[in-house]
Design a protein around this nucleic acid. Structure first.
Lengths: 203, 203
DNA sequence: CATAAATTTAATCAAATGATTAAAATATTT
DNA sequence: AAATATTTTAATCATTTGATTAAATTTATG
């Protein structure tokens, strides 16, 4: 025993991580059993604890990845001093919806875990970009001095992210097929910019 | 023993339910321990199981209440044949934001539980209003035949609900105080209608 | 006060679950 | 083939947690 080896390990380790990503994001930390992950990975429980010391450790790897996907994409865009508000919104919509189409469960997962353990994430997120210091925030304040810029940030994020958070519900009350959902979200990529500009210029 | 009594019982039963509402909505079903609820209610575990047979039973009471609050408000509004799109959006924004200010944890709670157990809620929600048959849906289709009405429904819900779902995160990355949050949400009540109309009339 | 009802106490169960272990089996490398 | 590394098997622990029980205590009621 011992993971002195390099090549073959990665394959099994990755199988476990991939299974952990799936189960954790689908059910959340508390509702996930390590046995579920092992089964999903097609390995046994002993091996899971052999590679990763604990459920907690494995979870932290997964949640970090997911938060990186969720936040890593948006930070550089809204911090860019060389693009207009319109361009920023366009980029956020385009890149973010693509990301979320590939990872539709992330928002509900991450936000749920933050809710369950705000203190744990406080340190992680707080060190990051302070939203109110962002270039986008200042640009919005200049364009609409009469409206709190935070409103528009919430609007942008709401237009992009909410459909993915509400998906389980929307599917129930509309009977929309997954295929249609993809088409709908793809169409939104271009629509959001137009809508946002309209809101920004609303009376 | 036995709850033949009528008056004093309600008080204790209600204490337990109130505690259950708080803990379940804050942590979700899986992360909630019946001992937490008992402690929050200021009673002992035995009494909890004496009044409500099980964790599951207590949970179903709570989730039903919360879903009623979440959906019961919106259904009659979007079904009303005697109001315009503008009036509907105005009503949804006004009434819904008030409801969510009083129950900010509901959306994340309900959506999370639906995600964790879609089958369980399928029967409950499916029997309700089919969204695509709503008056609002048809009005939107008439106003903008070139855009899937579902987009505008998602926009409306996103503008109203997302700030509450994203609250734990927004608080982290802005350092906004709960008081400010209330002010912000109150301001949105009037802004959303204007924004929605702007989106509806966007090129 | 006497009776009945409500609540607590404290102990205990049983099942689920995260984690560990040693030995056997399988695969990989040299 | 021999040596080494990986994976499985299977048993077992310890803890948590939902649930139950009986007896003691407190509170309300007549």
């Amino acid at each position: 025993m011992g993971k002195t080896k390099q090549k073959a390990d990665l394959s099994t380790e990755e199988k476990i991580k991939e299974a952990a990503r799936k189960v954790f994001t689908q059910k959340g930390y508390a509702a996930t059993r390590t046995r579920d992950i092992a089964e999903e990975a097609g390995i046994n429980l002993a091996l899971l604890n052999y590679y990763f010391r604990s459920k907690e450790k494995l979870f932290e790897i997964v949640i970090m990845e997911k938060m990186q996907i969720l936040f890593g994409k948006i930070a550089p865009i809204i911090m860019d001093a060389n693009t207009s508000v319109e361009e920023k919104v366009e980029q956020v919509a385009e890149h973010y919806i693509d990301t979320l189409l590939a990872n539709p469960d992330i928002p509900l997962f991450v936000l749920g875990e933050i809710r369950n353990n705000p203190d744990k994430f406080a340190s992680l997120v707080k060190t990051k970009t302070n939203l109110t210091d962002s270039v986008l925030f200042k640009q919005l304040a200049e364009r609409r001095p009469d409206v709190d810029p935070l409103h528009f940030i919430l609007n942008m994020l709401g237009l992009v992210i909410f459909p993915f958070i509400g998906k389980p519900l929307i599917q129930l009350i509309t009977g929309i097929k997954p295929e249609q959902a993809v088409t709908l979200m793809t169409a939104r990529k271009k629509l959001i910019k137009t809508w946002f500009v309209a809101m920004l210029e609303a009376p």
